[in-house]
Amino acid sequence: MIIDWRELVRTSLPALALAALLGAIFWLQPRAMSYQGLNLLLNLSIPIVFATLAQMFVLTVGDLDLGIGGFVTFVACVTVTWLAEAPLVGVLILVAAIGLYAAVGALIELRNLPAIVVTLGMSFVWFGLAVIVLPSPGGRTPEWLIAAVRLRPPGIPLAILAAVGIGLVGHLLLMRTSFGVVLRGAGGNPRAITRAGWSMLQIRMTLYALAGLMGVFAGLTLAGITTSADANIALRYTLLSIAGAILGGSQFTGGRVSPIGAVLGALVMTLAASFLAFLRLNPDWQIGVQGAILILVLALRAVLDRLAGER
């Protein structure tokens, strides 16, 4: 049997990018190759990984979520206020927020609306709610949450364990269960899915609810790391999550998504940001390095596709 090496390279691009980046860091700064070093490098990755997975769930049906940054901000603000002061109310707010996410999915499906505009509107809604909940920077994350993200498991830093765990759960859910197949099929050929008797409404609502759930986890862990919050805390998450998902091999259309790739993509994005700071280079180029890596990976993918097309 012939191994399709192009496909192999294509799927392992995010992993290669991560390895190359880590290699460069270790080579330039051998001390990074330690528990403490990795902890420092990947410190901020957990919420970004969750947010990227949220974006990926929405991408599965060919939609784009411009509201995830606002949502994560809102969750973080609820976490440092309601969840700390009145946990029950806090939990109810978060559950209701996930419900609202599913409702947005339903609205998009039922009225056949462009997801990009609806989620843009939701972005304003979430940022607005965040300001209402937490008018000025501050608040205090519940201690249990701070303790949770500061866990120091023996041997392997928490961020790495979390990434592996999230990636595996996402992979099992979307790629391995019989229902995950239907969810992805809905992105690949909605007509075939409808013809086989499945409901696009249920599928879209499920995916949006999953995105909401991931967004909640992102907000909780972000608040845990920062211990307080403000209404701009996750401003960049929208673009970062799209970049991470795309870098990880998810495509904009056709239901081609990869949870493990999304996790790797998010890690690359995080590392690219901490890379310069860690090497005491000009941190102004943090975002630029993220963009450059994204362009590089997309370019490599385009080259591979072109080679494949010439067969």
Binding site: V181, R184, G185, G187, G188, N189, R191, A192, I193, R195, G254, G255, R256
Partner: peptide, 11 residues
């Protein structure tokens, strides 16, 4: 009427 992003088994 197959989903191109799925495998034969998944379809």
């Amino acid at each position: 009427s197959l989903c191109p992003n799925l495998t034969a088994a998944e379809n």
